[in-house]
Simulated scan of single mutants.
Amino acid sequence: MTTPTADLSAAGVSIWLDDLSRQRITTGNLQELIDTRDVVGVTTNPSIFQAAISAGIGYEEAISAQAAKGSDTDATIFALTTTDVRDACDIFRPLYDSTKGVDGRVSIEVSPDLAHDTEATIVEAKALYASVDRPNVLIKIPATKAGLPAITEVIAAGISVNVTLIFSLERYAEVIAAYLAGLARAHSADFDLSSIHSVASFFVSRVDTEVDNRLTAIGTDEALALKSKAGVANARLAYELFEQKFAEKNAQDLLALGGNIQRPLWASTGVKDPALPDTLYVTELVAPGTVNTMPEKTLQATFDHGVVTGDTITGNYADAHAAFDALAAVGVDLTDVTQVLEDEGVEKFIASWHDLQATVTTALTEASNGSR
């Protein structure tokens, strides 16, 4: 008997946990998920660190040490988060080695405040990479217009990148181009291309939430019949685009030099609508060479009752195109939808970052007062 998570892995999907905390690391919970739930990587973001550090468990001593050194808020956040990621990288190192760098990855994101600042993003990406100092770290850079040249620059420096907050097919094409441009430059600089990896994080459930709100407002039978179809269709068309772009000559030339494909990663896979199956964005997005990063609730639901039937993407391109055509026909402007989602995604991460700064500022003050 196999488990659904083992079946998912066998179908070519890498399961990454969309969560990290010092408590997960120190209690052995993270290792347990590797051993029992087929988890082969971790992603983090400002919201995840805000939840972990605001809970306080496991961070008191480290914050007190930072306070004693006179560290400010941002330096403390940098120290806390890079330590967690470094420790998680060490736990995943055997997987990184056994998969030749494909999995065993832990992602850490540049400050969301820098989402529209190319140069500052590049500087912080390099600083995070140097501080974590582990080959299996992925530096997360958002797929904003300012993020695109930063992706190229960081890849060109030989640093592996997780491109985050992708919503539209048009932006995804630009992300692939930015990655390939970075690989070409890395080759010119004599980097070993086989050591550079990247994933492109395509957000799923948020697309359904925004589109379904618009369909409800339209209110016709035709519109309501299209609810909960946009997110999966969008991701399936992203995989079609991935196949097309990496079959083109410039990509094939770089792969022949040792370069790696940039794997599609399905993010935002927790179901927002309770009427939907809780494994929808897992079982309907199965294809070789993909990553699905799941909140623990979605991971456990998949392990418990997910039904994995093999590839559910490549045979469904026609249906995905038809869903997009139908959405356009009832008046849903998908270009506007994805731009709204990108803007909101950046704003939400900035808000979480500022909440994290406030939490750490308070903790530093309390630690300083307590030591006097």
Rank of each mutant, 00 (worst) to 15 (best):
M1C: 09
T2K: 06
P4L: 05
A6N: 10
A11R: 07
A11D: 00
A11Y: 07
R24M: 15
R24I: 01
R24C: 00
T26K: 04
Q31D: 05
G41N: 08
N45M: 01
P46F: 06
F49A: 12
Q50H: 13
I57S: 10
G58N: 04
Q66P: 00
A67E: 03
A68S: 14
D74L: 13
I77W: 10
L80G: 08
T81V: 12
T82L: 02
D84Y: 05
F92V: 08
S98R: 15
T99R: 14
G101S: 12
V102C: 02
D103W: 08
P112Q: 04
A125R: 05
Y129R: 14
P135R: 09
P135S: 09
V137H: 01
K145A: 11
A146L: 05
A146D: 14
P149Q: 05
P149G: 11
A150F: 09
T152H: 09
V154T: 10
S160C: 09
S160L: 11
S160G: 10
L165Y: 06
F167D: 08
L169P: 03
E170D: 14
Y172Q: 14
A178Y: 02
A189S: 11
L193S: 10
H197S: 15
E210W: 03
V211G: 00
A217M: 02
E222R: 13
L224E: 08
A230Q: 10
L237S: 03
L241S: 12
Q244S: 12
Q244N: 04
A247F: 01
E248A: 13
E248W: 04
A256T: 14
G258T: 03
G259E: 13
S268Y: 04
T269R: 07
V271K: 02
Y281K: 12
Y281V: 10
T283D: 13
L285R: 13
L285E: 03
V286T: 02
P288N: 01
T293R: 06
M294P: 03
P295D: 05
V307A: 13
T309R: 11
D311C: 01
T312P: 07
I313P: 05
T314S: 12
A318P: 00
A323T: 15
F324D: 08
A329N: 04
G331C: 13
V332H: 01
L334T: 15
T335S: 14
V340W: 06
V340T: 14
E344Q: 15
I350H: 03
A351T: 14
H354T: 13
H354W: 02
Q357R: 15
A363Q: 15
E366H: 08
E366K: 12
S371W: 02
